[in-house]
């Protein structure tokens, strides 16, 4: 899943940098809050651990071996924020030392493997394990399901990133400049390999490690117990968590509108006005041409005509818009906070 340089356009990488930079700073602050001065050694050795277990070969049923990524495992033992930092450091070492994953594509790789993979794995693990005891079977079941879904969602993101390249970046002669495969090829092939092979390996290994820890060192399954400094304020529970869930559901449901026929009331285009009124207002004709550079005009991309492929583009647009809005809100909030301090 390590995307090398040359497969993604520089603008795609820049877009992921815009997402990742605030994500890193939030993660660093969150982790530092509850591990204090222990932060550096714990994160450094955690990253070294993450790097080391990626080198282990795991036998798989066909007689060969495969690697586990360990992102889900790290999220379970360290929490999603600390896992994000550890995986980022491990990815940086891999990119610089081995050329495993590119230098420019580093931000995209971090988005897939350091943000999506651990956070999704952790959410599902928490959802299944709830507040059960550390030795409960629900813990390892949650670990297996979480790491499986987390890895596949990360692969899905990588597939989307690959698949959008030929649509957005090609020469006048229609020669793709970066990854040549459209979404209809890139997404299924990425998902196929991960659903069939890498996903099960990841799930089995994560579950086995969690069971090992349950049997011998169950306190290590909850990092807070070993890292918390006394009198340390634990991070406040997210009161807005339900709202984020609702937003996620809304994003997933956003393509439902595609099933409905016709245009939303008041959003008619020129040709629809022509049909409704019998003429097209001249003011509208003049104004409608002022902005014709939208990259995702009508929330769609050329070549995405079937319901499912337009649904993917819809969800992508929704996620992108939510990310931009959250970022702007975050920066506004920071700005306001610094002003009120002054």
């Amino acid at each position: 899943m390590h995307i090398p340089d040359g497969y993604l356009s520089p603008s795609t990488c820049a877009a992921f940098a815009v997402i990742m930079i605030p994500a890193w700073s939030i993660a660093a602050r969150n982790v530092k809050k509850w591990v204090k001065s222990k932060y550096i050694p714990l994160m450094a050795i955690g990253a070294a651990f993450s790097f080391t277990i990626m080198m282990y070969n795991v036998p798989i049923p066909d007689g060969t071996t495969a690697h586990a990524v360990g992102g889900g495992l790290l999220a379970i033992v360290l929490g999603p924020w600390a896992a994000m930092i550890c995986v980022t450091v491990a990815l940086a070492i891999q990119a610089l030392l081995f050329g495993d994953g590119g230098v420019l594509t580093f931000t995209a790789n971090c988005f897939n493997m350091a943000l999506v993979l651990p956070s999704v794995s952790y959410l599902i693990y928490k959802l299944i394990s709830q507040r059960t005891e550390l030795t409960s079977p629900r813990r390892w079941i949650g670990a297996a399901v979480g790491s499986y879904i987390g890895l596949n969602l990360a692969a899905c993101c990588a597939g989307l990133e690959f698949g959008l390249q030929p649509l957005l970046f090609h020469t006048a002669q229609n020669v793709p400049l970066y990854c040549p495969y459209p979404l209809t090829v890139a997404l299924p092939s990425m998902l196929f390999a991960h659903i069939i092979l890498a996903g099960p390996v990841e799930a089995v290994v994560t579950a086995l490690v969690v069971r090992y820890l349950q049997a011998y060192k169950s306190d290590l399954l909850d990092m807070r117990t070993l890292a918390t400094v006394p009198n340390d304020a634990s991070p406040a529970p997210l009161s807005s968590r339900k709202m984020w869930w609702a937003l996620g559901v809304l994003i997933l449901l956003s393509p439902l509108g595609l099933l409905a026929q016709g245009t939303a009331w008041g959003e008619w285009g020129g040709d629809e006005m022509q049909k409704l009124l019998g003429f097209e207002p001249t003011g509208m004709v003049n104004l409608s041409d002022t902005w014709s550079h939208a990259p995702f005009a009508d929330y769609s991309l050329p070549g995405f005509d079937s319901f499912w492929s337009s649904a993917v583009v819809y969800i992508f647009c929704a996620v992108l818009a939510t990310a931009i809005i959250s970022l702007l809100t975050y920066f506004f909030w920071k700005f306001q906070k610094s002003e009120s301090k002054a």
Binding site: I53, Y56, V205, L208, V209, Y212, L213, Y216, L220
Partner: peptide, 12 residues
């Protein structure tokens, strides 16, 4: 392999 990983985590 899983035990080695778990054990290594303890050492880590």
């Amino acid at each position: 392999v899983a035990s080695v990983m778990g054990n290594l985590w303890g050492k880590t």
